[in-house]
Simulated assay, not measured.
Amino acid sequence: MRIILTLGFLWAGLLVHAQLSHPKASPFQEIIQEVGLSQVRVRYSRPAVKGREVFGNLVPYGRIWRVGANESTKISLSHNMTLGGEAVPAGTYALYAFPEASVWNIVIHKDTTLWGDGRDAYKRENDLVRFAVAPESWPEVQENFLITFDQITHNGMQMLLIWDRTCVRIPIAVNTISLMDQRIEKALGNEPTPQTYYEVARYLQEEGRDYQRALEYINKSLEGGDTYYFYRVKSLILEGLGAYSEAIRAAKRSEALAAAEGKDEFVRMNQQNIKKWTGYLKE
């Protein structure tokens, strides 16, 4: 009996060691995209078209799809966001879709333990949110299913699901303004340097908000530093305030400092703005 058991264990061990690792037909990918001060991470597998009719055939209409292959696709949000106009708290979720010819229902699902789409184990009551998006035609065949991001700003972006000749765009928004206001308050209350004031002013200028406060901060930065990029941001803030004559003076100072440091690109950018704002003054 002992001999039989020993041989059985040996055979089981040989089977384990004999398992062959092989390339996957739908390779795994992880993508991390920054948006403002936040991150979105997606983990999914990428099936290929291989000459097949995809949507409405390989991926049937009206049935749950794992948005990829193999395990269910997972999406992780570092902060609270809105997807498709629906509020989604920070966390990790399964991403599913119910494709149709003219509309897709996208599902952010709380149960991340299901294999693939879950089929009979999937329970709609575990959906966190559902929202509808319209598919659009893609100009060329996307062979391997692709999830990517585009139109990225400080406050949002689009997540694109692309396969074959179909694309679905999911709008994502994050309240970076609130997050930044908290950081700004903390930074300005903790012995700010000229660089701190510059960074706050630059952020406000880039967002196109509160130009007067941005001007106060950039002037504070210039009290402790005299650099081409400080003056460049000041010129752009003054442009936002419609003070073109003052913007030209700041840009000329930025141009001179940039030239002294061999920063040709800043010389050109300042010259272009000076020409533009001089034209405004002549109108």
Results as ranks from 00 to 15, higher is better:
Arg2Asn: 15
Arg2Glu: 15
Ile4Thr: 13
Leu5Asp: 15
Leu5Gly: 12
Thr6Ser: 14
Leu7Trp: 06
Leu7Gly: 02
Phe9Cys: 14
Leu10Pro: 03
Ala12Glu: 07
Ala12Ser: 11
Ala12Thr: 10
Leu15Asp: 01
Leu15Gln: 09
Leu20Phe: 10
Leu20Gly: 08
Ala25Ile: 13
Gln29Ala: 13
Gly36Arg: 01
Ser38Phe: 07
Gln39Glu: 15
Gln39Asn: 12
Arg41Gly: 10
Arg46Glu: 01
Pro47Glu: 03
Lys50Tyr: 10
Gly51Thr: 10
Arg52Ile: 05
Glu53Thr: 14
Phe55Asp: 07
Gly56Ile: 01
Asn57Pro: 05
Asn57Asp: 15
Tyr61Ser: 04
Gly62Arg: 05
Arg63Cys: 07
Ile64Asp: 08
Trp65Met: 04
Trp65Thr: 03
Arg66Asn: 06
Ala69Lys: 01
Glu71Tyr: 02
Ser72Met: 11
Thr73Gly: 13
Ser76Arg: 11
Thr82Leu: 12
Glu86Arg: 06
Ala87Tyr: 08
Ala87Cys: 05
Val88Lys: 02
Pro89Ser: 06
Pro89His: 09
Ala90Gly: 14
Gly91Val: 04
Thr92Cys: 11
Tyr96Trp: 04
Phe98Ile: 12
Trp104Thr: 02
Ile106Tyr: 02
Val107Ser: 01
Ile108Asn: 07
His109Met: 01
Asp111Gly: 06
Asp111Tyr: 07
Leu114Glu: 12
Gly118Ser: 09
Gly118Asp: 02
Arg119Phe: 04
Arg119Asp: 15
Ala121Leu: 08
Lys123Cys: 05
Arg124Phe: 08
Arg124Lys: 09
Glu125Phe: 09
Asp127Gly: 10
Val129Cys: 12
Pro135Ile: 04
Pro135Lys: 00
Ser137Asn: 12
Trp138Ile: 09
Glu140Asp: 12
Gln142Asn: 12
Glu143Asp: 12
Glu143Arg: 03
Phe145Gln: 00
Asp150Gln: 10
Asp150Ile: 08
Gln158Glu: 14
Leu160Asn: 14
Asp164Met: 02
Cys167Trp: 05
Val168Gln: 13
Ile170Phe: 08
Pro171Gly: 06
Pro171Ala: 00
Ala173Met: 09
Val174His: 01
Asn175Ser: 00
Ile177His: 15
Leu179Arg: 01
Met180Tyr: 15
Asp181Gln: 04
Glu185Asn: 10
Asn190Thr: 14
Asn190Val: 08
Glu191Met: 12
Pro192Asp: 14
Pro192Val: 05
Ala201Lys: 06
Ala201Val: 09
Tyr203His: 01
Leu204Ile: 04
Gln205Ala: 13
Glu207Thr: 07
Glu207Lys: 08
Gly208Ser: 03
Gln212Leu: 08
Ala214Phe: 06
Tyr217Pro: 02
Ser221Asn: 04
Leu222Gly: 03
Glu223Phe: 05
Gly224Trp: 06
Gly224Ile: 10
Asp226His: 06
Tyr228Ile: 02
Phe230Glu: 05
Arg232Pro: 02
Arg232Cys: 10
Val233Trp: 05
Lys234Arg: 14
Lys234Met: 05
Ile237Asp: 15
Gly240Pro: 00
Gly240His: 01
Ala243Met: 15
Ala247Ile: 03
Ala247Gln: 09
Arg249Phe: 07
Arg249Met: 13
Arg253Asn: 08
Glu255His: 09
Ala259Thr: 03
Gly262Gln: 02
Val267Arg: 11
Asn273Tyr: 04
Asn273Met: 12
Lys275Ala: 14
Gly279Gln: 07
Tyr280Glu: 14
Lys282Trp: 04
